[in-house]
Design a protein around this nucleic acid. Structure first.
Length: 817
DNA sequence: TTCGAACGTCTTTTT
DNA sequence: GACGTTCGAA
């Protein structure tokens, strides 16, 4: 199907820059239909390159075609390629596209996520990395509970040192590549945090577990500190390709440098060729350590000479694109890039001002039904995007009431569900009895009479002996001891019994022996959980079939039932039995490079579960409207896109205003959202919104002022100069509660004692600069007053709760002298 | 030990 | 408004 025509193996490596659209008389089918910039990127000669790929410019296509081109022209072997992405989804897509282009053994290639590849390295060299071969991976939940346990054990004041914040701190340190000894300690607070970090590290090491950050950091150190290992991989990976480079953090960049070359006399000397693909305008993960500056650093440190901009957009009509371009041009720190399209202007961008979030949602639903009915738009081609998850509820309700099928992305994922976590904890104890996090998770679940006091006793014994909870059980006597002994014995017996059995058999026996199934069967609302546990067996089954043991780097895409979405691997052109092209270090991940020992099927499955939390919930089939946060929408595209809640405080989010570079990141977020749309784009904002259980007023987002008026069409009914013709009561009455009714309710509450010192009459007695007291927010200062009568509202700045707009008819305000 | 009420919190999120 | 955590009572 893809003949490797020797004629097309012409020395295209020198074809840079290409002279025209057709580079050679017999163009390879691979290169057909690439535009000049794409072609240039795909056929770059060896050396380092930065590809600035705008939204919708065919980035993934360039990346995969580049790999295929390298292979086809004998410029690289599959084993010599390292391609790294951020998400499993992106990695899978790359593999799928690649195997559609070339009959290549993708198993031999290192294509995967940063964490997946790190895992592979650490399993292969676990001794050099100082880890047990069967080390387990802590996800975010596990990590937090490990930290809480540690705090308890060392009597850390969790008021001062909140576990969540400690987790954030530790993760942040690791992202910066800092071990406890590297963290600056200016004050006693910092010293304490570092001390906890140190203790946490010791605990993880003792238990043989590794968190996500550790996966990265440990494999970075492995490369840095082991010359032969580093040299091996540097020689091996002649071509390193990085997707979404703008999202890399400091540590990931340092990791890449280790693989790419060495520092010689203060100057970095790369060996292989690194191609970084990214878009600084789509950097939306600074909040979790991403460093756009890596792009500039890359250019400088690698002496990058080839920079190619992909600015041709194949996705959107020009009204949409012009809006995106205009918006992003307000950012100051940009590498500079402007998307263009050859498509016509298309529909104008429609803008709607709603009186309330309810009305906004209702409008979206009406509009969608209209689109589906009259314009024949497929529902799955419609996406509703929002800044924060909390916004989805109102929209879901409206869609549900109108019986419009929808699907929400970003809920709890399969391997994160409580019942699944419990089951996995049992399995992990079979693999590694030292795993205290798992031990504590299930020691009394289902309840078996082991309470806090017994565990305290056990914890003390374990601390004293410096051993795991599992091993400390034998030292406990009395009733507490017998319960614990029974639990440990049960686990140990199960481990014996399941030795050498299939994964399916192991899990089924565990589910019975642990009492998990029984427990959920007896529970009134436990049906879903029982089904999920049964699903776990299926997931394991297909894992074994499709992956082979330990081959976790890239899984075939599975649907919500764990079934492969595509046909069998063979029909995709993948050859599972093909010999690996390079011998010594190319085995499946999980093979010890010294002993050849492999990870057990169970160990491999647990790794898979930790690194790939599974798809989000299935929900309604194909023909459903897609709901997700803007973050989650990155990399996707839809015919019709709604972006709701474009209000000050929400987008840009109020928390971002105080952060360095916060506004610019919010603007990029909006840019990403806009560029998801192919044909139609709707923007909306609402005057009021329920947030944290109370109605808040909000001004429309400043980003509206940055969009080109010529591309927009305001479709709000009864639009007045300042956008308000008493819409508040209108909207409220449409949903059964009037503003007056709310007022009545509140005044009733107020009428009963204790009598407030001085209830403010609406819009009277207040002026900018006055001090007021709010029953919930405390003392604040009035910044501004707007409107009259029931519509009057005041902007008040509170010390603890920030600046808010309050409806005077509703808010419980009193004057303070 | 277990259950229910009260309390506090609440951007974004992949691995 | 909703969820998770904590605290007190049975």
């Amino acid at each position: 199907m893809f003949p490797q025509d020797p004629v097309s193996r012409a020395p295209q490596g020198d074809a840079f820059p290409p002279q025209g659209a057709a580079p050679s008389p017999t163009p390879s089918p691979l290169l057909a239909n690439l535009n000049p910039e794409q072609l240039a990127a795909v056929t770059l000669p060896s050396g380092h390159a930065l590809i600035l790929a705008g939204a919708g410019s065919g980035k993934t296509r360039v990346l995969t075609t580049r790999i295929a081109w390298l292979l086809q022209n004998g410029l690289a072997t599959p084993g010599g390629i390292l391609a790294v992405t951020f998400t499993n989804k992106a990695a899978k897509e790359m593999v799928a596209r690649l195997s559609a282009m070339l009959p290549v053994n993708v198993r031999g290639m290192w294509i995967g996520t940063f964490h997946g590849l790190c895992n592979r390295l650490l399993r292969a060299h676990h001794k050099a990395a100082g880890l047990p071969q069967a080390f387990q991976i802590l996800d975010t939940q596990d990590q937090l509970s490990a930290i809480k346990r540690l705090c308890k054990q060392y009597n850390v004041d969790t008021e001062r040192f909140v576990p969540k914040q400690l987790q954030y701190f530790i993760a942040g340190c690791k992202e910066e590549g800092m071990r406890p000894g590297d963290v600056p300690t200016h004050d006693s607070d910092a010293r304490k945090k570092v001390e906890i970090y140190q203790l946490y590290e010791e605990q993880c090491q003792r238990e043989g577990v590794v968190d996500f950050g550790e996966l990265m950091l440990r494999s970075f150190e492995l490369l840095r500190d082991n010359d032969p290992i580093r040299a091996h991989y540097q020689r091996r990976f002649a071509h390193i390709l990085v997707d979404e480079f703008q999202d890399t953090n400091k540590l990931q960049y340092a990791w890449l440098k280790q693989l790419a070359g060495d520092e010689v006399a203060g100057h970095f000397e790369p060996q292989g060729s690194v191609m970084a693909v990214g878009d600084d305008d789509q950097s939306i993960y600074a909040f979790r350590g991403a460093r756009v500056g890596n792009m500039q650093d890359f250019v400088r440190e690698f002496d990058v000479e080839r920079q190619i901009k992909l600015e041709q957009n194949y996705r959107s009509y020009s009204n949409i694109l012009d809006s995106a371009n205009a918006l992003i041009s307000h950012n100051s720190k940009r590498l500079g890039k402007n998307l263009r399209t050859e498509q016509g202007p298309g529909e104008p961008v429609r803008v709607y001002e709603a009186a309330s979030d309810l009305q906004e949602a209702q409008w979206m639903v009406d509009e969608i039904r209209q689109l589906v009915r009259s314009d024949g738009v497929a529902r799955q081609e419609v996406a509703i995007l929002y800044r924060s998850n909390a916004q989805s509820r109102v929209i879901e309700t409206a869609l549900f009431n109108a019986a419009v099928p929808y699907r929400v992305y970003g809920g709890l994922r399969f391997f994160e569900r409580a019942e699944i976590k419990h089951a996995l904890a049992y399995l992990r104890l079979l693999e590694n009895p030292q795993d205290d996090t798992s031990f504590l998770r299930v020691v009394n679940f289902p309840p078996r009479g082991i309470g806090a006091r017994s565990l305290e006793l056990l914890q003390d014994a374990a601390n004293g002996a410096g051993c795991s909870l599992h091993d400390a059980v034998s030292t406990i006597s009395g009733k507490a001891g017998s319960n614990l002994t029974a639990f440990v014995a049960q686990i140990d017996v199960l481990r014996e019994q399941t030795q050498g059995q299939t994964l399916r058999a192991i899990i089924e026996q565990m589910l019975e022996a642990s009492g998990l199934l029984e427990h959920y069967r007896a529970e009134r609302d436990g049906q879903d959980r029982v089904e999920n546990l049964e699903e776990l067996v299926n997931a394991a089954e297909s894992f074994v079939m499709l992956e082979g043991f330990g081959r976790d780097a890239v899984a075939l895409p599975l649907d919500e039932h764990g079934e492969p979405l595509t046909q069998s691997p063979a029909s995709q052109g993948l050859d599972l039995n093909a010999p690996l092209l390079d011998a010594p270090l190319s085995g499946p991940p999980g093979v010890d490079q010294d002993t050849g020992e492999t990870l057990s099927p169970l160990g491999a499955f647990l790794t898979h579960a930790a690194l790939e939390a599974g798809d989000n919930q299935a929900q309604a089939g194909q023909d459903a409207v897609q709901l997700m946060t803007v973050h989650a929408s990155k990399g996707l595209e839809f015919d019709v896109v709604f972006i709701g809640g474009l209000e000050e405080g929400l987008c840009p989010h109020e928390n971002a205003l105080s952060e360095q570079g916060g506004i610019e990141e919010e603007r990029r977020l909006m840019y990403v959202a806009i560029t998801r749309a192919r044909k139609r784009l709707y923007l909306s904002h609402s005057q009021t919104r329920m947030l944290h259980g109370q109605t808040r007023y909000a001004m429309k987002s400043r980003f509206f002022d940055e969009l080109p008026e010529s591309a927009l069409k305001w479709i709000t009914p009864k639009q007045s100069a300042f956008g308000r013709t008493a819409p508040f009561s209108e909207a409220a009455s449409a949903y059964g509660t009037s503003a007056r009714g709310q007022f009545g309710l509140n005044s009733e509450r107020f009428a009963s004692p204790p009598v407030p010192p001085q209830k403010l009459p609406a819009a009277h007695g207040l002026s900018a600069g006055k001090k007021v007291f709010h029953t919930k927010f405390g003392e604040g200062k009035v910044l501004a007053i707007e409107g009259t009568g029931d519509d009057a509202r005041a902007q008040v700045s509170f010390a603890r709760h920030g600046t808010k707009w309050l409806a005077l008819a509703v808010a419980k305000l009193t004057l303070v002298d």
